[in-house]
């Protein structure tokens, strides 16, 4: 029976920690990628901003604006976000709350990509975001 108990505990630990590093390591990687996104925003580098978007978010942005991402993203009015206040990572999804913005990300093979940005919380409803996937 102690073997079964150990299996339950081991599974819980495995599931909690996940295969992609410890929670603090994952939060660190998410913070790095968001910081890179915010630096590109501050520096007005549309190519880097578009490269940081998840494919479906980029596609939605281009379809809505009927132009290339590099042109469209400058017209979205994304706020200067400021410093990172908190990072939540669950599985392949993350939320980063910054001083003046909230950004959502998803994990891809080549790193964390922004799925939604320019987001404002709404009571009892999903965040309202300037850019997001369809």
């Amino acid at each position: 029976m102690s073997g079964r108990t150990a299996s339950v505990a081991a599974l819980a630990v495995l599931v909690t920690v996940s295969s992609c590093g410890t929670p603090s390591e994952r939060r660190g990687r998410v913070t790095e990628d968001v910081t890179r996104f915010e630096r590109a925003l501050d520096a007005g580098q549309p190519a880097q901003l578009c490269a940081a978007l998840a494919p479906s978010t980029r596609e939605e942005l281009e379809q809505a604006a009927k132009t290339r991402c590099e042109r469209a993203i400058g017209e979205q009015g994304l706020p200067r976000a400021g410093a990172v206040r908190s990072v939540d990572v669950y599985g392949g999804q993350a939320r980063v709350v910054l001083e003046h913005d909230t950004v959502f990300l998803a994990r891809f093979t080549d790193g964390w990509k922004v799925t939604a940005a320019g987001c404002r919380p709404r009571p009892q409803q999903p965040y309202q975001c300037e850019i997001k996937s369809g």
Binding site: A12, D88, Y90, Q93, R95, A106, P126, Y127
Partner: peptide, 20 residues
């Protein structure tokens, strides 16, 4: 273990739907 894994799975779904 259900509560620990459950909150993580629930929150992953929440984030995917742009919720807190």
């Amino acid at each position: 273990a259900q509560s620990v894994t459950g909150v993580a799975a629930y929150n992953e779904q929440q984030l995917r739907q742009l919720q807190a």
